[in-house]
Design a protein around this nucleic acid. Structure first.
Lengths: 204, 204
DNA sequence: TGAGCGATGTATCAGTCCGATACATCTGGG
DNA sequence: CCCAGATGTATCGGACTGATACATCGCTCA
């Protein structure tokens, strides 16, 4: 059951680990995490939240502010102990499913909570994936000496360039990570030594 | 009914205009047109073919090679007169639906069959779309001075850079197109002066 | 004051699309 | 001859989206 989307579940868990929220805000944050594109719809989010609730990974106390003020129907979700464990487990995976386009961004967004070794694994896996794609396009391009429209050609050339660019980006990140593993400078980490658990969620 | 996917329909029509094919080859060509990602599945292709068939935009003569040789169950599809008309119609549109990520690539791939004015419109529309996205990310980035993970920040920075890059690419194309409209050099056109209708589909 | 109105908030559903799968035929190598 | 792998057509369950519905909040303007 909990095997449905994977990516969304991870994103929700990760976001809730930072601070408790309700669905609507979750959806807004999600746009930031998943990139401006890949917007998630409520039709996916709420079912996901439900299944997470059923599985016991998150809870919602509606009992708060019962003292007489306005009773909104806002549900504030937060991680349970099981949920935190689940998150750590997911974060530690870094398997081949993490190299995918939609998965990678989310995994990367939560690198702050991720072990350094896993970070490196994901980065390198992603690079292989991209190089593989590069290979495909290149060979297709040379094979396509046949009769291709020059617009099609230009499109593929541009696509190839984008991939090459991303590979270079990954290479820089990998280098930085390796340095970080060796000497741990505060190169790319606002939270350098301490391992998270900073739940300072003071909104408005 | 024929309002189902739009993009796929256009791609199929455009590919079949170049030369008649069967579904399997169509699917392979599609990978090239839609980019290495965005691979289309048979679960979408065959239904699309069926509806196109029903609508009378394409046909298949299975009557060929009935003389006694091996009767394959290969269906070779080709455009009908209605289909060609439909394709021209779709190609002439260039409306707001063409600025989308998935649509744009396909539209661009068939620029060879597209009118110069429409090409320009699509290119510029796509640019606006991208600039809008750029705006969003930029403002999100400055608003996100709050407490963002530096990995998340790096991700968004990279995303923004990609968008900026693509805008620059578009700008070059637009400039080239404008020159082409004004002076028509064979800058980006294998078929410079003649307005399409070159159906030299001689496959092996 | 309160009427409008856009943002916030939760929820569902029909339709669409994908991944997996099944099945059949053709081709070439051992 | 036989098998493996490419070619080829087709379908289905289930996930995901976009649209929609509904309700409340907080702001502005007359």
């Amino acid at each position: 059951m909990s095997r449905k989307s994977g990516v969304l579940e991870l994103a929700v868990l990760g976001l809730l680990h930072e601070s408790p929220m309700h669905g609507y805000e979750l959806s807004k944050r999600l746009k930031g995490v998943l990139g401006p594109l890949r917007a998630i719809s409520y039709g996916s989010l709420y079912p996901c939240l439900s299944s997470l609730l059923d599985a016991g990974f998150i809870t919602t106390d509606d009992s708060a502010s019962e003292s007489g003020a306005g009773r909104r129907k806002k549900h504030v979700y937060k991680l349970t102990a099981d949920g935190k464990e689940r998150l750590q487990e997911q974060l530690a995976e870094g398997g081949p499913s993490s190299w995918d386009d939609e998965s990678f961004d989310v995994r990367f967004a939560f690198f702050g909570q991720t072990d350094a070794a896993v970070r490196l694994r994901i980065l390198e896996g992603r690079r292989s994936r991209l190089e593989e794609r590069q290979e495909n396009v290149t060979s297709a391009l040379s094979r396509a000496r046949e009769r291709v429209d020059s617009y099609t050609l230009e499109l593929q050339r541009h696509g190839l360039e984008s991939v090459e660019r991303e590979v270079r980006w990954l290479e820089e990140l990998i280098a930085t990570e390796r340095d970080g593993v060796a000497a741990r400078p505060h190169r790319l980490n606002t939270t350098p030594a301490t391992t998270g658990t900073a739940i300072e969620g003071e909104d408005s």
